[in-house]
Nucleic acid binder design. Structure first.
Lengths: 211, 211
DNA sequence: TGTACATCAGTGAACGCGCGTTCACTGATGTAC
DNA sequence: TGTACATCAGTGAACGCGCGTTCACTGATGTAC
């Protein structure tokens, strides 16, 4: 053969990887078939030997970005000492470096709005991958497997993603740094609360009724 | 005059308003000049009597969306009884209705990623408006004006916006409802903590050093 | 009071450009006989 | 061993379409004299 055995699948993977960066940086409309192929060292005509359509590629790029995010968290948690796993994930997340690298960063703040505009299949896939993320974070909580751990994971994730987005909107100055710092402590708050002796507020949280 | 005195400025405002909905729903690339003018009952050629370019309109649409968001919060806070202002804002925010109406909803989850791709002038304007939002939320905190109130406002805002994004990604089922509910209690947590007798954790929050 | 001209929001044809997609072709290698 | 054919990743011209922008024009009203 002219090419190695896995040549085509490697090319395919390379295109998807590049696309997932562009997707996060510029949104779905920022992925141009010609640009992408050029970046992969090919010409635009060959694109359709790899994907049925541009939309199909976008679906794969979404999946790749979300998988990459989960994978990084898992790796980071594994490398941290017991009892500091969650803090390690949070503190690695809310940094200037992550704030300034949207293309290689977390899929949630970059693609949260974008996923709503994707086709139903992609949206469904993203929802499933979000479930995986929550379970992954939930596993880093003090008592994994419980309902409380799951709720804390959701709250922590929301605060992480929200803080990163706000920090990005705020630019790169002291305002932005302030948000990152605030987010770092706020994201681990549910856990800190549970670690500390309980005071009734946690077990049966009173929710305001003015929904 | 053929038209009333404020006719032109009214048309201008109408275009911007429509654009700000589309901007939130479909992103900046979802704003088509022709579609927009048709929606305003006009033809595409007249667009440039109102705006120097499509990009200029986008800038105005951003500003409008963010102002509208802040305005709604302020109104909601004003209408709520003392001591429940923040809860009212949060509980009105994390609802299925808001989740399902991106176009008329909060600018932050819809435009957070989008604003990064806007031109520098628009980005700077958005950062300033974000400051306003934080101050606005900060004013609803137990001791407004303090550093703690500002930090709590940032954390609350981050959790609100993050929860809404996650809920949207999760679709419209029970998974999504779970996220909204979790977010409602998590968003007001910093305040609930301060209301309760302090226990040292708040005043000098220990931040993990593994940044 | 009437006439000629200025104003100005809006019209719609036209232009240029970028982009997704198609398709006949290339050229190196593998395979059948 | 050699020859004819199949395979297949990739090429690049071409097509169609949508969209931002321009521009000469319209037509109703206001104004100068």
């Amino acid at each position: 053969m002219r090419y190695s055995k896995d040549h085509k699948s490697e090319t395919h993977a390379r295109i998807v990887k590049n696309a997932s960066v562009l997707l996060r940086e510029k949104g779905a409309d920022g992925i141009g078939v010609a640009d992408l192929m050029k970046e992969a060292g090919l010409t635009h005509g060959g694109f359709y030997a790899h994907f049925n359509s541009r939309d199909a590629l976008i679906g794969e790029a979404f999946a790749h970005a979300m998988d990459q995010t989960t994978h990084r968290w898992r790796k980071r948690a594994e490398q941290a000492p017991e009892g500091q796993k969650l803090a390690s994930v949070v503190n690695g997340y809310l940094t200037p470096a992550h704030r300034d690298d949207v293309g290689n960063g977390c899929a949630l703040p970059a693609l949260g709005a974008e996923v709503l505009r994707a086709n139903p299949k992609t949206r469904k896939a993203a929802a499933l991958k979000l479930e995986e993320m929550i379970e992954m974070v939930s596993d880093q909580m003090p008592s994994p497997g419980t309902k409380a751990a799951r709720r804390d994971a959701i709250a922590t994730l929301a605060t992480m993603l929200g803080s990163l987005m706000l920090a990005r909107m705020a630019g790169t100055g002291t305002f932005s740094s302030e948000i990152l710092e605030t987010g770092r402590s706020a994201a681990v708050r549910p856990v800190e609360q549970r670690k500390a002796p309980q005071r009734g507020l946690n077990k049966a949280r009173s929710r305001s009724t003015t929904a």
